[in-house]
Design a protein around this nucleic acid. Structure first.
Length: 808
DNA sequence: GACTTGGAGGTACC
DNA sequence: ACTGGTACCTCCAAGTC
């Protein structure tokens, strides 16, 4: 049989202790297809230099006799091949060792500890990654496949055993998405009961429940008990037949909860296309897997791939949906949960369904990004929606090694990781100390993907890292001495250069012909390029090279400082610089652009300086110094307005979520008045008005709420800060408090004089007046004080003055 | 008990 | 444990006088 096929889900399985890969996907008509392929697992033994042919033959013979026993399973070396390969750019002879079961590759490798063997590699790559690397049946690409019909215990339209596959042109593809969400009686996984499950797909909406049903909506279906509801959930998902089952925070809540309740009810949550139970892989965070259906936790994907482009301060469904879909969650008061009337249940069903509705729409909206991530990195959707950026970078590299005939480096294990983590931080970026003031006519230059282009231009990588030599590039690492890098092109640099070029190409294409898909594609490459430098310095990386990362930082410092000097030489006053950007005063745009060209001519390799923008005004403030410290300009804190009147604020409290809205909004208003109108007097009036409002208690509670994230488990805090107290209070009230939660509280008046802030903490719904003194002295005045300092106005005096006036 | 100082903690910048 | 370093600022914790 011959047909078109797009693989979506990958899974390995064994028959008679041999490995196979099962791909689930669709044909162009939307039929669900299962495709089975052999997997010939292998790893590499790299031979020492200059071994005689006879010696090599002996080694091969020894290797071919190796076998291991793992419980019932006996794994042996099936065959070997001798190849000329490369390892970190060097030519090596290596034995390709095929094993009958790849799961035991590590154990087989352990037995090959002969003196003739230099290194053993690639036994630590996951089976699906290895399969994709080897057979090049790439996720979400279209193929024409040929194969025999196969009877296989799986619920798809057709199942084939693969014989031939040919890549063909893309056909537009939209997966069948089903979103789900649950509500439970208690927050802790499995402790309470699942009260309802909502499902939302195309022309499909349902809420399954076993609770009050007399006034239910038409989309609600009622069951006798939790068990029947869970069974129906499985049935509904199967009938719908989605490619993707999507939840929001469903790895951490919905799916483990469902599984726990199914276990409790002694039933199987047989969502898998082969009727298998949902399973969870252990890791720092649980990952819920359903065989044949891609379970996606949108929250995790958004967190790694999307969050840096979002304004949302938390990644809650409500905030993210509000930003991306312009829709919010429905209201529901959870404190009612203990005594629910029929109308309350009605409202709860609607609330539950709406969460699935939002999740479904988010999934459709973000689909281009998931698709392009998967195609770019060449890893399955399931992985790409969960992996962090370091894995994404690494997988991108692994899938591109073959072109370089490279054997992959190993992943570090415990001792090596510990060693790397114990190393001190190396010196990073240069940040210019600004002089506080209001400046006019500012030009901003910045380097495009500075660190990546430094890495490419100077060939900084593990492969190029060498002992001191005349031909090598010498990088001065200051206190740490010097590092040397060979000048040949290494695969790391080549791959990174391609990534940068593709990003440029797709960005240009997008500008010409905008589409969500092109935007997503350009973005995927951008994210990978941006994470590559961090990858070099990441202790868990296969291609970790601290010296390369430190050298990238050192050479970037050198570049930006030289750029600053050149700008100064032209007679400009440089006012700021951070890492890859420089701001200076200009008087003539043409001349400024000429200067840009001139600097670019002198830059090495692919390094490129760009005009970020021309700004009309810019404000830099001083640090809130401790006593006796000399007043100095604050780094990473400034506000600019460009010629179109667009304001850019960095670092100020306005953009910090751990300050109350009142302070943030006031500061923002003041910055705008100063930047747009240059009117600090009017700004001062607004501050006075706000002070009066605070004192007369006219401020809404919402505006004085402070939000702080709980970064670790409550018990691990050494210092008991206000947000820890607030979290403890929440816990006492039976509210869910988990690591990562954003805690909300306000500072209240207390009967007795208390000196510590935490003694005045109250939860938003607690009775009590806000603490005038605190909001004045710890929120409002600090937020605007250093802005008015620039104009020689002491805000503390003003505050005191207005307080005297109000007294009279 | 008032005051200083160091560091824990959180969040932002690039 | 799951990309890197730099920086600001608040509030607690513990020490000094």
């Amino acid at each position: 049989m011959k047909m078109h096929f797009i693989p979506i889900d990958y899974e390995a399985f064994d028959i008679n202790d041999k490995n196979y890969i099962r791909m689930i996907g669709r044909n162009e008509k939307g039929k669900q297809i299962c495709l089975i392929d052999n997997f010939e697992g292998y790893f590499w033994a790299i031979l020492k230099n200059n071994l005689s042919e006879k010696k090599i033959k002996e080694v091969i013979e020894k290797i071919e006799k190796i076998n291991v026993e793992k419980g019932q399973r006996k794994t042996k070396v099936e065959k070997t091949e001798l190849h000329n390969k490369k390892f970190l750019g060097k030519n090596v002879k290596a034995i390709k060792i095929f094993v009958t079961n790849y799961k035991d590759a590590h154990d087989v490798a352990d037995k090959i500890d002969f003196p003739e063997i230099e290194k053993r590699r690639e036994y630590d790559i996951s089976i699906t990654t290895k399969y994709i690397m080897d057979r090049k049946i790439l996720p979400l690409n279209w193929y024409e496949i040929e194969g025999e019909l196969e009877t296989h215990d799986i619920n798809t339209d057709v199942c084939l055993k693969l014989e031939k596959a040919k890549k063909i042109d893309d056909i537009e593809f939209m997966p069948k998405i089903l979103a789900y969400d649950i509500e439970a009686s208690e927050f802790e996984i499995g402790k309470g009961e699942v009260l309802m499950i909502s499902l939302y797909g195309k022309n499909f909406k349902k809420v399954l429940t076993w609770k009050s049903c007399s006034k239910k909506q038409e989309y609600v279906e009622c069951f006798k008990d939790e068990r029947e509801m869970l069974e129906e959930f499985v049935k509904q998902v199967k009938d719908y037949g989605p490619d993707m089952l999507v939840g929001y925070f469903s790895d951490g809540f919905d799916l483990p909860y469902l599984r726990a309740r199914a276990d409790k009810n002694k039933i199987k949550l047989a969502l898998g296309l082969d009727d298998s139970n949902v399973s969870f892989s252990r890791g720092r965070i649980l990952s819920g897997r359903i065989s044949g259906i891609v379970h996606v936790d949108l929250f995790r994907f958004i967190e790694t791939a999307y969050s840096q482009y979002l304004q949302s301060e938390t990644l809650s469904l409500d905030e993210v949906a509000s930003e991306l879909l312009k829709e919010n969650k429905k209201e529901f008061d959870f404190s009612k949960l203990k005594k629910m009337g029929e109308d309350d249940w009605r409202q709860f069903f609607e609330y539950n369904l709406h969460d699935s509705y939002l999740t479904f729409n988010l999934a459709e909206k973000i689909w281009p990004d998931m698709l392009e991530f998967s195609k770019t990195i060449q890893e399955p959707l399931y992985d790409v929606t969960r992996d962090g950026m370091s894995s994404n970078v690494e997988n991108y590299i692994l899938h591109n090694l073959e072109r370089f005939n490279e054997i992959a480096e190993k992943r570090p294990i415990h001792d090596e990781i510990e060693k790397r983590r114990a190393l001190p931080k190396y010196e990073g970026a240069f940040v210019f100390q600004p002089i506080p003031g209001l400046y006019e006519d500012i030009a901003f230059f910045d380097f495009t993907s500075m660190y990546s282009s430094v890495i490419v231009s100077y060939n900084l990588s593990l492969q190029n890292f060498v002992e001191k030599s005349k031909d090598a590039l010498e990088v001065d690492l200051g206190k740490e001495g010097k590092a040397y890098f060979s000048k040949e092109k290494g695969f790391f640099g080549e791959i990174l250069e391609e990534i940068i070029n593709k990003r440029k190409e797709y960005k240009k294409e997008y500008a010409k012909n905008p589409s969500n898909l092109l935007k997503a594609r350009s973005n995927a490459f951008k994210l990978i390029a941006n994470a590559s430098y961090g990858y070099l310095g990441f202790f868990g990386a296969r291609y970790y090279c601290r010296q390369a990362a430190a050298s990238a930082a050192a050479l970037a410092r050198k570049s930006i400082i030289e750029t600053i000097d050149k700008i100064k030489e032209e007679g400009h006053k440089v006012i700021y610089s951070d890492t890859d950007s420089v701001a200076f005063l200009y008087d003539n745009k043409e001349k400024t652009l000429e200067l840009l060209k001139k600097i670019n001519k002198g830059l090495p390799g692919i390094m490129e300086l760009d005009l970020e923008d021309f700004y009309k005004r810019g404000l830099f403030v001083s640090k809130r110094n401790k006593k006796d410290e000399e007043e100095s300009g604050a780094k990473k804190k400034y506000a600019l307005v460009n010629e179109q009147g667009k304001i850019k604020i960095r670092g100020f409290e306005t953009v910090r979520r751990d300050w109350c809205e009142l302070a943030r909004n006031l500061q923002s208003k003041i910055l705008e008045l100063i930047l747009k109108e240059g009117n600090e007097k009017k700004a001062l009036e607004i501050v006075k008005e706000t002070i009066l409002k605070i004192k007369t208690r006219k401020i809404d509670k919402k505006e004085i709420t402070i939000k702080t994230q709980l970064k670790k488990a409550l018990s691990e805090y050494k210092a008991i800060t206000p947000h820890v107290i607030a979290a403890q209070k929440m816990l006492k009230q039976g509210m869910p408090v988990s690591q990562g939660a954003v805690i909300e509280y306000f500072i209240a008046e207390t009967r007795e004089k208390k000196s510590l802030v935490r003694e005045k903490v109250k939860l938003p719904d607690e009775k009590g007046e806000y603490n005038v003194e605190y909001y004045l002295n710890n929120q409002i005045l600090p937020a605007v004080g250093n802005i008015f300092d620039v104009f020689g106005v002491n805000i503390d005096d003003i505050a005191k003055g207005s307080s005297q006036r109000t007294l009279f």
